[in-house]
């Protein structure tokens, strides 16, 4: 066991954990989107789990730092919050938020993060970016909503650990990066409808087709 201090609280945690895991296990929330317990190497892409650690001159991501004896962690310094807010606003500048149309259970993870770090869910002062992506992409048994997706890669990893051959992938790159499904037509590459990717998605960017039909109806009534 390892002893660490988080926000003045002394914790005892298992070795080999990351700071993020140790905090989450002890009921200390650190905003995160791309963290997955089952992933051996941290993806470290969402850039939300910043913490301040004594001895470092700037905030670092909690998902990439292992616990060790005597570590002193602060989760809410002004520097930490500034970076988290900045990253969050960037994500929200691509994620049009329409609570009435969004099938996530409210408050969704993004709303909880916003509340935790003390910002609204709009990207101000940043403008919204329109990438000209389609509203929906047909994945065979699923629909993918690229504008909602935060590219946390949880679905890709989850699908990969269930199917030996990963059916989901990132495609393209940069601001145009999307999750994609490209079947070679081989039987082993047909989605088994396990819905694991749908369940793991924090922002309802993947929908089973049945849910999608309800959703379309909702959209029509709303319009």
């Amino acid at each position: 066991m390892v002893k660490i201090t988080v926000d003045g609280k002394k914790l005892e945690t298992e070795e080999h954990l990351t700071v993020l895991e140790a905090c989450l296990q002890n009921g200390i929330f650190i905003p995160n989107l791309c963290f997955l317990k089952t992933r051996p190497h941290p993806h470290a892409s969402c850039r939300l789990c910043f913490v301040s650690i004594e001895g470092y001159d700037r905030p670092i991501t909690a998902c990439t730092e292992r616990v060790r004896d005597g570590l002193v962690v602060k989760t809410d310094t002004p520097e930490v919050r500034a970076l988290q807010r900045s990253a969050f606003k960037l994500l929200m500048s691509l994620h049009p938020c329409n609570a009435k149309l969004c099938p996530t259970e409210k408050p969704c993870l993004l709303m909880r993060i916003a509340k935790h770090i003390g910002v609204g869910i709009n990207p101000k002062p940043l403008e919204r970016i329109n990438r000209g992506l389609p509203d929906f992409v047909d994945f065979g048994s699923l629909y993918y909503v690229p504008n909602r997706c935060v590219l946390c890669a949880r679905c890709i990893h989850t699908c990969r650990s269930i199917n030996k051959r990963p059916l989901l992938t990132f495609a393209k790159r940069g601001i145009m990066t999307m999750v994609a499904y490209f079947s070679s037509g081989n039987d082993s590459e047909v989605c088994s409808n396990c819905n694991a990717c749908v369940d793991i998605c924090p922002v309802a960017a993947l929908l089973p087709k049945s849910a999608f039909i309800n959703f379309l109806e909702a959209k029509e009534t709303h319009a």
């Binding site: 051959r165 990963p166 059916l167 990132f170 994609a180 037509g185 081989n186 590459e189």
Partner: peptide
């Protein structure tokens, strides 16, 4: 994909990068 024993998605994902 077939030749290398990868999924179509993987090859597509790499190629589009």
């Amino acid at each position: 994909a077939e030749y290398l024993g990868l999924s179509g998605s993987e090859v597509y994902g790499v190629a589009t990068f």
